[in-house]
Amino acid sequence: MPVRLDARLAGDLFFFRVLIEAGGFARAGDRLAVTQSAVTQRIQRLERRVGYPLLERGAREIRLTAAGHDLFAAARSGFDGMGEALLRGERREGRATLRISCVPSLASEWLAPRLKAFSDTHPDIDVAVFGETHDLDPGRMAQSGIDVAIRYGPAPPPGATVAFDHPEPVYPVCAPAYRDAADPGGAVVLLHDATPWEAAASVSEEWDRWIRVHGAPWGGRIQNLYFNLAQLALRASLGGSGIALGRSLIVAPYRADGRLVPACDAALMNGLRYFVLVRALPPAGPVAAFVDWLGRTMAGPPGSPEAPRRGGAAECG
């Protein structure tokens, strides 16, 4: 029986495309805001519908069959064409908007509270901000209509075009009550962002990097709590649940009002940065205006950590 395109098949093809581009079921689930098992079920349903396997079984990583390669190329081309047509339609109707893709923690904790300053000086530019973590190169930015992307990590995404990068020192932070109540012989709770960047080697990659620089912290028993977003780990630290790795731009206001304090002496770790990505250099028009504003704002008054007082959880090693 011939396979006919309908709404269900179109939806499953979109899941298939995201799976291949994400490189794994868990990452596809994160991008689609569904569970890993939901992605698996959609791919299995698609294979039953088309009548042939799309993925090689038993492979440790995602590998397409020959037929899977053909279907993926067709699905990507079709969805890209529809996306580009929708964007052209918006621009013809005069509804063009500067689209910013930003890692969620920076978007919610730092960028969103400052956007009024950009809008006040550029009232003719509409802005849409999307909290996202997946890697983007110029082609994927164009396909999804993203004008500027901000990503965090030790290196920019593969193939990305970087307008500038901003160093982001990180250091352990916690609520004052957690530091003051710490038992030198007790357990220390480390709060993890389990997906700090797309290619992170493990769910503890960010803390592992810090430990390689400063040694195992506090000499006691370690308990770990994992979150899929950095701002969840930050909120847990604000609530007194443990120690998070604070990114300087993000934790500066909480340091200023006393809700967070450094959890360890001499604990700065360098080497992580925010990368500001564009489709092409040099940026022009609204993109250039935003990138210029962003660079000046990020380089504004620093929120570098002060030397914490000693005692309790403030001692490392």
Rank of each mutant, 00 (worst) to 15 (best):
E168G: 09
P169Q: 14
V170S: 12
V170E: 07
Y171P: 06
Y171W: 15
P172S: 14
V173T: 13
V173D: 00
C174L: 14
A175F: 13
P176T: 15
D180P: 11
A182V: 13
D183Y: 14
P184W: 15
V188C: 15
V188I: 15
L190Y: 00
L190E: 00
A194M: 05
S202N: 06
S204G: 08
E205F: 05
W207Y: 01
W210R: 01
I211V: 13
I211P: 00
R212P: 02
G215P: 03
G215S: 03
G219M: 13
R221F: 09
I222Q: 00
Q223R: 12
Q223S: 14
L225F: 06
L229D: 10
L229F: 11
L232M: 09
A233N: 05
L234H: 08
L234M: 12
S237L: 03
G239L: 12
G240Q: 03
G242S: 05
I243K: 00
A244S: 15
G246S: 01
I250V: 14
I250Y: 01
Y254S: 12
R259M: 04
L260S: 01
V261F: 07
V261S: 08
V261L: 14
C264W: 02
D265G: 10
M269V: 08
L272M: 09
R273H: 15
R273F: 05
F275D: 04
V276A: 02
L277Q: 05
V278T: 12
L281P: 05
P282G: 08
P282W: 07
P283H: 02
A284S: 12
A284R: 13
V287S: 02
D292S: 10
W293P: 01
G295Y: 07
